[in-house]
Every structure is written in C-alpha cells, then in structure tokens.
C-alpha cells in the first residue's frame, strides 16, 4: 500500500505505536485490565499478546490503585510501562498513585529519579455507558505539576504522541476519546513522534479562533466548514496537550482573529476552557479582542443514560456553529 495514503483507525494507530515501542525498546511493556487475550475493552491492545507474550502484555487484576502503583514502581526502577485504564473514570481509584507518587516522586527526591510511565485513559461520552463510564477528567490531572497530559485528536497524532510519551522521561497521561477509536485517518508507517506541548492549527482563518480538544476538534472543523458559506472564516487550534499548554500558538492565533471560542467536552466550570481564556486575558492578545471570550463545555451534570440527554450534555456541531456565528456577528 502507498505509505502516503495509508489509513488506520485511531485504535489501530495506538496499537501500532505500542508495537513499535516494544520492538524498539525491550523495557517497554503493557499493563492493564483485560488487555491480553480479550484485547482490551476497546480492542486497542487487540492481538498484541500473541506477538509479545504475557510477560510483556500483562493482564492485571481489577486493581487500579495497585496496578498504577506497580507501573510507577517499575518506571522508577528502569522499565517503561504503558498502563491502560479500562475507562478514564477509573482514574478516580488510582488518583493516589498518579497524583501523590508518579507526579511528585522526581521532585520530592530532588531529581534523583525519573518516572517514565505512560497511562492511557479511554475517555468521554457518547457510548450510552452513563455517568461512571463517560467522564472527561483530563483537567483534574492537568492541574498537577509533574504530569504531562495529552489528548490526541487524530490517528496520526495518537500514534506520534504515544511514541513521544514512551520516550518521555516523565509521566504522560493520554486521554483518548472513545468515539475517536474508530476514526480513520492517514498514519505514516514506522516510527515518528508528535511533540508533547505543541498545539496544531488544523484550519487557518481570519475571523475567529476556536481552541478545541480531542473529539471537539473534528466538531469544530465541521462547524467551520458549515460557516464557510456564510463568509465566516474560522481558525481551529487543536490544543493536543493540556499540560504543558502551548500558550504561544493560542495567543498568536487570537491576535490574528481577535475572537476566541473554547470548545471541550468536560464539564465547563473550572475546565481547560477557563485556563485558555485566562491565559489569553492575561496576555498581549487581550488588547486584540473584539468580543468577549466564549466557552462551550459540558453541562453541569453527570453524563445521563438517555441518548438524547447524553447528546445534550456535551457541545455538538450546531452548538458550535451557533456560538461561532454569534461571536463573529457581534451578537455576544
């Protein structure tokens, strides 16, 4: 197949990245619940256990706290674990090890150790899994110095950022939206990395900057395409990393467009949109603003089961279109 047009799903891209990482470095191994013969709850590890064996694709008991701690301990002592949470919601069971240990160990020990652990979190709503299997908790971890937190939005980035994460000496938390797993896109063969801490401008525009994360990037692009016919020219910034955040790309974009809309799935209050808004308000881009900053985030509610309610909980393309149009037309 022509490498230039090769397409993989987001899940396949992650799986390929893990295989490449294991081929390149014998210290890399996978841990998680039902990631072996079952292939992972979302089939991301798939058949990797057949290629790498149960010593490198390790099924853990249902012990998120202990499992995360084992991954931290292995990382500190020379291994390169990739730990899969079955659902990002289960990070709540492992917050102690993630927040108190993985994030702080290097600092507390005065730089005497590194914690090169990668943790993967299938996140987000849209699967009918209700309140405990649908959350977007990335901002919780984004609040913790010592962690790096990324949200790849495309198959290309899912592979490249995972390979960057594995090579990173510090703990990297990857939030993967479950609805993206089937998304197809161009994924180059072989090893490549996409840098952590660097946002990507997905679409250039003059009238409005939309800073979006994860699945909201595609929705923002769809909204931008729809508004093209109305003569509204939108720039879409895929944040990709929420810690460390790429301030400059955001600031430069807002200086160009003079309007900012933040779109993210997590609960709106105290979320990544607040951070993006504040960093723009604190920067020289503030003087360029022609309209108030607007945030579109998740409703102030747990994710409900009913599909219509579930959909209404998080920003959808029409919501983005309406907000963008209002901003540019000066309704806000």
């Amino acid at each position: 197949m022509d490498a230039a047009v090769r397409e993989l799903s987001y899940a396949q891209a992650i799986q390929e990245a893990m295989a490449i990482a294991m081929d390149m470095d014998e210290r890399v191994f996978l841990m998680g619940e039902d990631i072996g013969v079952y292939g992972g709850a979302f089939q991301v590890t798939g058949d990797l256990v057949e290629r790498y064996g149960t010593d490198r694709v390790i099924d853990t008991p249902i012990s998120e706290l202990g499992g995360a701690g084992v991954a931290v301990g292995a990382a500190v002592t020379g291994m390169r674990p990739i730990f899969e949470f079955q659902f990002s919601d289960f990070a709540t069971l492992a917050m102690e090890q993630i927040v108190n240990q993985a994030a702080k160990m290097r600092f507390m020990l005065g730089g005497e150790v590194s914690v090169p652990v990668v943790m993967r979190f299938p996140a987000g709503s849209g699967t009918g899994a209700a309140a405990q299997h649908s959350q977007s908790l990335e901002a919780w971890l984004g609040h913790v110095p010592g962690l790096k937190v990324i949200q790849p939005a495309t198959p290309h980035d899912a592979k490249g950022m995972l390979l960057a994460a594995v090579a990173d000496p510090d703990p990297v938390m990857i939030f993967e939206h479950k609805l993206l797993y089937k998304m197809k896109g161009h994924v180059p063969e072989g090893h490549y990395t996409v840098p952590i801490g660097k946002a990507e401008i997905r679409r250039e525009g003059r009238d409005l900057t939309i800073v979006a994360t994860s699945i909201m990037v595609q929705k923002a692009l769809d909204a931008a395409a729809a508004l093209e016919g109305e003569g509204i020219d939108i720039e879409v910034v895929d944040l990709r990393t929420i810690r460390p955040i790429d301030r400059q790309t955001i600031i430069d974009s807002v200086k160009k467009t003079s309007r900012l809309l933040c779109v993210y799935e997590a609960v709106k209050t105290l979320g990544i949109g607040a951070e993006v808004s504040a960093l723009v308000a604190e920067s020289e881009a503030f003087d360029y603003l022609d309209a108030p900053i607007v945030r579109l985030g998740g409703a102030e509610t747990p994710i409900p089961y009913n599909p219509d309610l579930e959909k209404a909980t998080v920003p959808q393309v029409p919501d983005i279109i309406a907000a963008a149009r209002d901003l540019v037309k000066g309704v806000r």
Binding site: G69, V70, V76, T77, M79
Partner: peptide, 19 residues
C-alpha cells in the same frame, strides 16, 4: 501516604524480575 510505597515496591520487584 500510608501504604503509598507498597505498590511501588511491587513495581520495583516486577522490574527486577523482568530485567
């Protein structure tokens, strides 16, 4: 953190076994 070091020790032992 009370008990915080226990899983970390198990991870270090896993490293020992794997390496």
């Amino acid at each position: 953190i009370v008990a915080g070091g226990i899983p970390i020790a198990v991870g270090a032992a896993l490293s020992s076994k794997m390496m």
